[in-house]
Amino acid sequence: MKVIFLKDVKGKGKKGEIKNVADGYARNFLFKQGLAIEATPANLKALE
């Protein structure tokens, strides 16, 4: 799953980066902790 990092995550990505991560890791950790959001077209446009 492609995500946009909202904060730096050690070993995974830095704020503003778009990367592929495992679906479960994204849903169960990154999204719940507020560290990333899904890289949807609307979210990508908002990032610009």
Rank of each mutant, 00 (worst) to 15 (best):
K32T: 11
V21A: 03
K7W: 10
L35V: 06
D8T: 12
G34W: 06
I37N: 02
A22V: 09
K45D: 10
N43E: 06
G24K: 12
G16E: 02
N28W: 12
L47K: 05
A22P: 15
L47Y: 14
N28I: 09
M1K: 08
K10G: 08
F29E: 08
V9L: 07
T40S: 10
Y25V: 07
K32Y: 07
L35A: 06
A42L: 09
A39L: 05
I4P: 00
G13W: 14
K7V: 15
G24N: 14
N28E: 12
A22K: 12
P41N: 09
K14T: 09
L35P: 00
L47F: 14
V21Q: 04
E17Y: 03
F5A: 00
G34P: 00
A26R: 03
L44P: 02
K19G: 07
K19M: 13
L6M: 09
P41E: 14
Y25P: 05
G13Y: 13
A22G: 10
A39G: 05
A42F: 07
K12Y: 15
G13V: 06
F31Q: 03
V21H: 02
K10P: 15
I4M: 08
T40Q: 03
K19E: 04
F5E: 00
D23T: 14
P41Q: 10
K15V: 09
K19V: 12
K19Y: 07
K32R: 12
I18L: 06
R27V: 11
K15E: 07
E17R: 03
E38Y: 06
K32P: 15
V9P: 01
V3A: 01
D8A: 07
K2P: 08
T40A: 03
K12G: 13
D8M: 05
P41W: 10
N43K: 05
K45Y: 09
K15P: 05
D8F: 08
E38N: 04
A26L: 12
K7A: 12
F5H: 01
K10V: 13
N20W: 15
G11I: 02
K10F: 14
L35Y: 11
Y25H: 06
E48N: 10
L6F: 03
G34H: 07
L44R: 06
K2D: 10
L30N: 00
G13N: 03
E17F: 03
G13D: 02
D8W: 08
T40K: 04
N43Y: 06
I4T: 01
K45S: 12
V9Q: 01
V3M: 04
N20F: 15
R27I: 14
L30V: 00
L6D: 01
I18A: 03
P41F: 09
E38P: 12
Y25Q: 05
M1V: 14
T40M: 03
E48R: 11
K12I: 15
N43L: 07
K7P: 00
Y25M: 06
A36Q: 00
K2W: 15
L47W: 14
V9N: 01
L6S: 02
Y25K: 07
I18G: 01
G11E: 05
I4G: 00
G11D: 09
V21S: 02
G34Y: 07
K12A: 15
A42N: 11
E48Y: 12
Q33V: 11
D8S: 10
